[in-house]
Design a binder for these strands. Structure first.
Lengths: 162, 162
DNA sequence: CATATATAGTTGCGCACGCAACTTTCCTTG
DNA sequence: CAAGGAAAGTTGCGTGCGCAACTATATATG
């Protein structure tokens, strides 16, 4: 466990994994945003809400905040925008009147059906730079890191937000 | 190359790599920020500038923007803050009086010497969740993605900014 | 040598974000 | 069933960010 911090601390940002992850994530997001921003007028929070509600019909804002790890105010504003645009609808008819069940409207489902194939294609185009073996190793690392950092309980309720 | 977008588009955000990268990067950054924010009062842009200037003595703001892929205004403001705090100093004595050569001050070098080992330790602590073999595979994927996305020319001049 | 164009860096502006505080509803516990 | 506390969601506020425009300097061109 001896660190290499003797005379030369030797931190080079381009080789520092936390920095590399940030830069890579930002770059990949930029690629993706051309799809959901330029072509559909959605920002990242709106896109994430659409994607979540699209596959988890009837979920709550709290659930979205937990699974995407977005701050609940960010989720709240994204939902407000999407509702105003008529892409999702809120139903408070649950047994718990504090929470709002979210669903895509007809227009929302139409947009979702257009958006998803394009998003998947963008993902595929980026990941295509790796061999199948490389991709397997990379995703295994992702899995491991997410589990270690407690990002894995996606399917579960994800009650404890940050 | 047949996509799976027939009836069910099948996009599940927790398995969508661009999203996973964003979430992971944000989480790792949070871990790191406890070091440079709480203990040294630096935000991400300031930390990146410190780290860059610390290893690339005499570099310019343009170089930092290119290598970190931060917007030049973000870099400019970070430099202004760090200069105000007396951690870096600007010298316009170059042959080109438009650009400013950046260096750590004595106080800056002191802070840098404290900060770097802690940052490296945080990186190590996170990466320690992977076996040596897993880490190798993960970093290989990182390398490949960065090269594909044009994020690699770090050591070079990085003249073409975004 | 004058004009035009490009580059390094800064600043005004609008906006999205996170924090804290708030409202409303639910769930305790006496 | 009353009261305290917790949870879902919203909103006011301050701030950091990106865009566009700007200043100043350097370089190209007639």
């Amino acid at each position: 466990m001896r660190a290499r911090s003797l005379a030369e601390p030797a931190l080079h940002l381009p080789g520092f994994v936390p920095f590399r992850l940030n830069r890579l994530a930002a770059e990949v997001s930029n690629h993706l945003s051309e799809v959901y921003r330029a072509r559909f007028g959605l920002e990242i929070p709106e896109w994430r809400v659409m994607a979540t509600v699209g596959s988890e019909h009837g979920c709550t804002a709290q659930y979205i905040a937990g699974s995407t790890r977005m701050h609940k105010t960010r989720v709240s504003r994204a939902i407000a925008n999407l509702t105003k645009r008529g892409l999702i609808e809120r139903a408070s008819n649950s047994g718990d009147r504090r929470e709002m069940r979210l669903r895509l409207t007809k227009a929302g489902r139409r947009l979702y059906a257009q958006l998803v194939p394009l998003a998947l294609e963008r993902e595929r185009a980026v990941l295509a730079c790796m061999s199948r073996e490389q991709l397997r190793g990379f995703v295994a690392g992702l899995d491991r890191l997410e589990e270690f950092l407690g990002l894995r309980p996606n399917t579960r309720a994800a009650e404890q937000s940050q």
